[in-house]
Each structure stands twice: as structure tokens, then as C-alpha cells.
Lab assay of single mutants.
Amino acid sequence: ELKKVVALYDYMPMNANDLQLRKGDEYFILEESNLPWWRARDKNGQEGYIPSNYVTEAE
């Protein structure tokens, strides 16, 4: 089971490997080892790295 998180803030990608975050949207965490960058997937199936301090665990 993948960990689900909710974006606390918008995040615009800095490079091609990053994933855009939209405040309030849910994302699945694929990999937590790259702290403070986590690999995530959005609801459309896009994958990339996000800043872990921009998300919180979903209820």
C-alpha cells in the first residue's frame, strides 16, 4: 500500500525530474529514501520528485 499525502503548498518544478504540486491535491509516495526529496505520483499518473516538507500524510 502506497503512502498517500496531501500538498500543503503549490510547488512549481525546478527541473524535468520534479513533479508539480497543487495545494489540496493528493499524491502517492513511491520512494521516501531521497530525503528531503520524495518520489511521488499524482492522480494523472505523472511521477517525479517533490519537496517532502510541502506535503503532509493524508487522513
Rank of each mutant, 00 (worst) to 15 (best):
P13M: 02
P51L: 09
A16K: 08
L2H: 05
A40E: 00
E57S: 12
Y54V: 04
Q20M: 08
G24N: 07
Y54N: 03
R39E: 04
R39A: 04
G48E: 00
L35Q: 12
Q20A: 13
L21S: 01
K43Y: 09
A58I: 04
E31D: 09
E57G: 13
P36D: 12
L8H: 03
Y9H: 15
V5D: 00
Y11V: 03
P36G: 07
Y11Q: 03
P51R: 08
Y49H: 08
L2I: 07
Y54L: 06
D18W: 08
G45W: 04
D25Y: 07
G48S: 00
F28S: 11
Y9C: 13
Q20P: 10
W38R: 07
G24T: 02
N17D: 12
P36V: 08
L35M: 11
N15R: 14
Y49K: 09
Y54C: 10
Y54H: 12
S52L: 05
G48H: 00
L35V: 12
L2K: 07
Y27C: 03
W37F: 12
L35W: 12
I50Y: 01
K3H: 04
V55W: 01
K23S: 07
Y11N: 02
N44W: 09
M12F: 09
Y9W: 09
A7C: 04
G45E: 05
Y54G: 15
V55E: 02
E1K: 10
K43S: 12
L19F: 02
L8F: 04
E47I: 05
E32M: 07
Y11K: 14
P51H: 10
E57W: 09
R39T: 06
M14Y: 05
Y27F: 05
K43Q: 13
T56L: 07
K43G: 13
A40G: 10
E26K: 12
K3S: 05
R22G: 03
L35Y: 06
E59D: 06
S52G: 11
D42H: 03
E57M: 11
N34V: 15
F28D: 11
I50A: 02
N34G: 15
V6D: 02
I29N: 01
G45P: 00
Q46Y: 06
G24A: 03
G48Q: 01
E32Y: 07
M12V: 11
P51V: 02
Y49W: 11
K4Q: 07
L8V: 09
K43T: 12
R39V: 08
E31N: 09
E26Q: 08
N34R: 13
G24K: 03
M12I: 15
S33K: 13
F28I: 11
V6H: 05
Q20F: 04
L30R: 04
W38C: 11
Y49Q: 15
P36H: 06
A58H: 07
L35T: 09
D25K: 08
A7T: 01
M14C: 07
G45K: 06
E47P: 02
P13W: 01
R39D: 02
L8W: 03
Y49A: 10
P36R: 11
V55Y: 01
N17W: 06
N53K: 11
S33N: 08
P51Y: 10
M14K: 13
K23V: 08
R22T: 10
E32N: 09
I29K: 03
Y54F: 15
A40K: 00
N44G: 14
Y11E: 02
E31G: 09
A40C: 06
R41N: 02
N17S: 13
V55A: 03
I29V: 13
R22E: 10
Y54A: 14
Y54Q: 05
N34S: 15
E57D: 08
N15Q: 12
N17H: 14
E1Y: 09
Y54W: 08
L2A: 07
N53G: 10
D10C: 01
K4Y: 03
G45V: 02
E26S: 13
G24L: 02
M12H: 13
F28T: 11
Y9Q: 15
S33W: 08
A58Y: 12
A16Y: 05
R41Y: 03
R39I: 14
V6Y: 09
N34I: 13
E47Q: 06
K4P: 05
Y9G: 11
G45Y: 09
M14F: 14
M14S: 13
K3C: 04
A40D: 00
Q20V: 07
S52W: 10
A40L: 04
L8R: 12
A7V: 01
A7R: 00
N44C: 11
E1P: 03
G48W: 00
A7S: 05
Y9F: 14
R41C: 11
E47G: 02
T56K: 14
N17R: 13
L35N: 09
N53Q: 10
T56S: 11
Q46K: 15
G45M: 06
N17Y: 07
N53A: 13
E26F: 11
Y11H: 05
Q46I: 15
V5P: 01
N53I: 03
Q46G: 10
Y11W: 14
Y11C: 04
K3E: 03
R41G: 03
R22M: 09
N17E: 11
R22Q: 12
V5C: 04
G48R: 01
A16Q: 14
Y49P: 02
Y27P: 02
S52A: 12
I50E: 00
L2P: 05
K23P: 02
L19H: 01
E57Q: 11
T56I: 04
E32C: 08
W38D: 05
N53M: 08
N34T: 14
N34Q: 15
N17T: 13
P13H: 02
W38Q: 11
E47H: 04
V55I: 09
S33L: 09
A16L: 07
K4S: 07
E31A: 12
E59V: 14
A40S: 03
E26V: 10
N44V: 09
M12K: 15
N53W: 05
D25H: 12
M14L: 11
R22S: 13
E31H: 09
A16F: 04
V55S: 01
Y27T: 01
N17K: 09
K3F: 10
Y54K: 05
Q46C: 14
A40W: 00
P51E: 02
V6R: 07
M12C: 15
A40P: 00
W37K: 14
T56G: 15
L30N: 03
F28R: 12
D25M: 13
N34C: 15
E26L: 12
G24P: 01
A16S: 10
L8C: 10
D25W: 13
E1V: 08
T56N: 07
E59Q: 12
K4L: 07
Q46M: 09
K3L: 07
L21V: 08
N17F: 11
P13F: 00
I50T: 01
V55H: 00
Y9N: 15
L19T: 01
L35P: 13
R22W: 07
M14T: 11
L19P: 02
R39P: 04
K4E: 05
L8D: 05
P51K: 06
K43E: 13
P51A: 04
L19G: 00
V55N: 01
Y11S: 05
S33G: 11
N44S: 09
Y27W: 00
L21P: 01
V6W: 08
D42T: 08
G48P: 02
V6C: 06
Y11F: 13
E57I: 05
L19C: 02
L2T: 05
Y11A: 03
K3Q: 03
M14P: 13
V5H: 03
A16E: 14
A40N: 00
I29A: 04
L35A: 07
A58Q: 08
T56C: 10
G45Q: 05
W38Y: 15
S33A: 14
Q20D: 05
K23E: 09
N53R: 11
M12A: 14
E57T: 13
S52Q: 10
R41M: 13
E59G: 15
N15E: 12
N17V: 08
P13T: 03
A58R: 11
K23D: 02
N17G: 09
E59H: 09
E57N: 15
S52E: 08
D42C: 06
L30F: 10
E32I: 04
W37R: 15
L21R: 00
Y9D: 13
A58D: 07
D25A: 10
Q20C: 09
L2F: 14
N17C: 12
G24H: 04
Q46F: 11
A16P: 07
M12D: 10
T56M: 14
D18Y: 14
Y54D: 02
K43H: 11
K4R: 08
